[in-house]
Design a protein around this nucleic acid. Structure first.
Lengths: 337, 337
DNA sequence: TCTGGCACTCTGTGTTCCCGAGTGCCAAGT
DNA sequence: ACTTGGCACTCGGGAACACAGAGTGCCAGA
């Protein structure tokens, strides 16, 4: 049904179209790739490919353009992920190594990805629910007001101001802090809700109302709305790629945290690449854009995801190589700090 | 030289051009604004205005368009800042009031400004050097590694991981923390460098090397590179305003922190509006864009700046009203938390 | 099964033409 | 000294048109 030559033709079409951004015709194909057959033969193959929905022609008598389905086949079976050059690897390493805290790691990763792929980069902070507690701090700010600071093993620092129901002396706060840390230290954040339930038992009765307030705020920070934090950059690359239509839609999608998080997709394996092509992705404003994403993590756990977003007409092998490499390096950096 | 009527003509040209985005001719002016004179007279005035560089015509025999100089005159002398509607004020209030921490305040402010003005919003975090220390926390992470957390009176929380030169027991850390807080509490961050110099005197000699390491990291966070933090949003509005040329340049400028900070400009008075029109602003990629910015702060101190960026052809009275109002509200919210 | 040939179909581009909006200038009116 | 109506002029943008070129589908022959 699809013999080797037809596949070769499809591959050639995708490659040419990606590099020229113009519908590619049978003659051009015969010239630029040595497929060993004449344009007429290629035309026949093209007709078959079109028949089955892998390519399409914008107008009668224009060349062919891959469809989403065509890109999909290309990605799945016709392309090989292209590894980065040595220079690029070194650049990544030195660039990421200079970061001093999580914010900076994430920021630099975004820039790096954007620059490497010339596309829009999207990076998620390590998911709270997949992290564990390293330390909880209670800082008195004023009477009846403290700041709750939560530090995770992944380097995230979340803070919330808490208004207390009553005045409370510093030594009682110190005790509270000690109990909290004793109970929660090392506790996976997804288990925090259960663990927290036991805490009042370890406290003198008079401290329990205050503790309840603080703990409820703590739980709040784990709620979905605050749990995921996501950042993007490199939008200037969008303007360069002539996104004829829909640039507006794309920018809107990017500013919607919720959409963005869904775009990066559900977790695959660690460093496993997910590719969503055009209509495959779950947001209609993004017809015409593809997402290449991967999970990153330290050790064997996936902490969160990162990826890039660009026109369906993108250089998948290169992009996939870059995303995979960056995901791995970020994992390493995170593990080492 | 510029009598009242000529000024009225200029005002009318600006208003019409802003609302229609098309060069405006003498006849249209006579029709839509009742200036009480004939098109011919208006033509004469226009010739004078053009002579002096306030307006220009894209081609012979097209209408006139304001120049940067024309907008400048309009902003300085011909327009009145338009206050927000009651509904808008209430919307701002409720929207900002829901924020639980500084990050959220800033994020919401960006969205608010972008939505209100339909332009790109830019918001700076409260400047560290204009804040003071509320609390310093040292959290043990591992042997020879602690996290230094700095909380300011403006709600900023900065954290840095510090590698120590030697093991150090928890009680010594507690002491260090106590001394640090005693010395620095309430201290303006711009005075921290001097204050810090005295601290080793208050410590037992054996703790001084460790303290030196920690303090040097503390000082690092005050270095310019980390000091300013700035955020933008609403880029989708750029795509809507047909920025014919240069959208790419604008997006690039936005992603350059340094440029962005300079754009918001040097401080004027608190809530004082700064308007930079087209070529007036210090970055060549932003020909064709204007910036409207204001300082915000709690009490009488300016903590940082915020503003919007849009095409020179923007509705200045409305935009200025929105920026000023938001700056004030943010100041209030900050003062209250 | 491949190939060359051929007729056909488009799009994009260049040309020409013309309409209309807008101007500048001038001479007459107030 | 301004203002006004009139008038000739300019120029951009759209419509109509033709045309070249790229690409196709199909068919008959190797």
């Amino acid at each position: 049904m699809l013999d080797d030559r037809k596949l070769a033709v499809l591959r050639a079409i995708v490659e040419d179209y990606v590099s020229t951004n113009e519908p590619v015709g049978s003659k051009a194909l015969a010239d630029r790739h040595n497929l060993g057959v004449s344009p007429a033969t290629i035309r026949n193959d093209m007709a078959a490919l079109e028949e089955q929905g892998y390519i399409t022609q914008p107008h009668t008598s224009a060349g062919r353009v891959p469809t989403d389905k065509g890109y999909r086949l290309f990605v799945d079976r016709l392309s090989q992920i292209k590894p980065l050059s040595g220079a690029e690897r070194r650049a990544i390493e030195t660039f990421l190594a200079g970061a001093v805290d999580l914010d900076e790691i994430v920021m630099r990763t975004v820039r790096l990805l954007a620059q490497l792929t010339r596309q829009v980069a999207v990076v998620q902070y390590p998911s709270l629910t997949r992290s564990s507690v390293r330390h909880v701090e209670i800082v008195p700010l004023a009477e009846r007001r403290v700041m709750l600071v939560l530090i995770t093993n992944t380097g995230r620092v979340e803070q919330r101001v808490v208004d207390l129901p009553e005045d409370i002396a510093d030594d009682r706060i110190a005790n509270l802090r000690a109990v909290l840390n004793a109970c929660l230290d090392g506790c996976g954040l997804s288990q925090v809700p259960e663990t927290v339930a036991d805490i009042p038992d370890h406290l003198p009765p008079e401290d329990r109302p205050v503790a309840a307030t603080i703990l409820s705020v703590l739980l709040e920070t784990l709620v979905e709305r605050h749990e995921e934090k996501i950042v993007f950059g490199g939008t200037a690359n969008l303007a360069a790629a002539d996104f004829s239509i829909g640039l507006r839609d794309v920018l809107e999608a990017l500013e919607e945290q919720v959409v963005l998080i869904r775009l990066l997709g559900e977790t695959g394996g660690l460093s496993e690449l997910t590719v969503r092509i055009g209509s495959e992705n779950p947001y209609s404003g993004l017809r015409g854009t593809s997402i290449v994403a991967a999970g990153y993590g330290s050790g064997d756990r996936e902490l969160a995801r990162l990826g890039v977003l660009g026109p369906t007409r993108m250089d998948y092998p290169v992009t996939m190589g870059a995303v995979r490499a960056v995901a791995r390096y970020v994992g390493q950096i995170l593990a080492g700090s």
